[in-house]
């Protein structure tokens, strides 16, 4: 297993874990975190591709993309956190409305 594959696979594992987190934890902060970390997992996948051809200089493009991606992710996370706070202020709850009631009751 090359390092490239290792990186890529571990990135995918991170993504998968985060998807699980996003799905199963109703708390907003956890969800936001899951998404944030999921972004990092994808960046990991990206970076793994920068050394596609062994022996050559690493491809700079994924770096540029990851940098841009990080900026975007930071913005998004910041905005999401701010929004979550507002939601909490207004609704006195850190959950989305449908997640507050146990699903079986709603059904």
């Amino acid at each position: 297993m090359t390092s490239v594959t290792l990186y890529a696979l571990s990135g995918m594992v991170v993504v998968a874990v985060c998807v699980y987190g996003l799905v199963s934890y109703p708390h907003l902060i956890r969800k936001i975190l899951a998404i944030n970390v999921m972004g990092s997992g994808i960046f990991l996948v990206f970076l793994s591709f920068s050394r596609r051809v062994p022996g050559e200089n690493p491809d700079p493009v994924p770096h540029a993309m990851v940098l841009t991606g990080i900026v975007v992710a930071v913005c998004a996370t910041a905005f999401a956190l701010a929004l979550a706070r507002r939601v909490h202020e207004v609704t006195r709850s850190s959950y989305l409305p449908e997640e507050q009631d146990p699903p079986e009751e709603a059904g």
Binding site: M38, A76, A80, R86, V87, T91, P97
Partner: peptide
Amino acid sequence: ALTAGMRYLLVSLLGSL
């Protein structure tokens, strides 16, 4: 609007990712 926005944001981010 806030809760809908929160949901939308999560969805949107998931989709983008």
